[in-house]
């Protein structure tokens, strides 16, 4: 495994996309940065520009308006870049399954590397997921 990829697992800059969520998942994500969980210990930082992103964190149920935007964001991100789906909405559309406004799940649109289920998932669950992702990347699969 290359040195730069190893460095990436220790310095993940996260870009946060809300693609039609109820805002609860987003609040839980912000909890990760608070003193109690302090994700900066592991080099994880929330950044504002998609050009700096190493991970795209997507919440919400992919409605018709947000799908093209999510696709565009993924195209604009510098590779290597992982996609993380947070919350049951992003995973399986949850209660919006039969809605007129949502058509596909996230993994039909983008290659998703990590699924974090929950409504909303606890910060502990997200840390657990990130640890799994980092282990997977280090093993080079």
């Amino acid at each position: 495994m290359s040195v730069t990829l190893k460095a990436l697992t220790r310095s993940i800059w996260v870009f946060h996309v809300s693609a039609g969520s109820c805002n609860n998942c987003d609040i839980e994500i912000l909890d990760l940065l608070t003193p109690r969980f302090d994700a900066e210990r592991f080099g994880i930082q929330l950044i504002g520009s998609i050009r700096h992103a190493d991970a795209i964190l997507i919440t919400g149920a992919m409605n018709k308006k947000s799908v093209p935007r999510v696709k565009k964001l993924y195209e604009q991100a510098p590779k290597p870049c992982v996609v993380i789906a947070v919350g049951t909405c992003a995973l399986s559309q949850h209660m919006f399954r039969d809605s007129y406004n949502v058509e596909e799940t996230l993994d039909k649109i983008l290659p998703v590397d990590l699924y974090i289920p929950g409504c909303p998932p606890k910060p502990e669950a997200m840390i657990d997921g990130i640890v799994k992702l980092v282990t997977k990347l280090r093993q080079g699969t």
């Binding site: 460095a7 302090d38 900066e40 050009r51 510098p78 290597p80």
Partner: peptide, 25 residues
């Protein structure tokens, strides 16, 4: 000051190293 633990000492080196491996758009 925020009552957090903070990053390890090599964090800034790691950041630079990581950026070298990223795509330049």
């Amino acid at each position: 000051i925020h009552w957090r633990v903070g990053p390890p000492w090599h964090q800034n080196f790691t950041d630079i190293l990581k950026l070298l491996g990223k795509e330049t758009i």
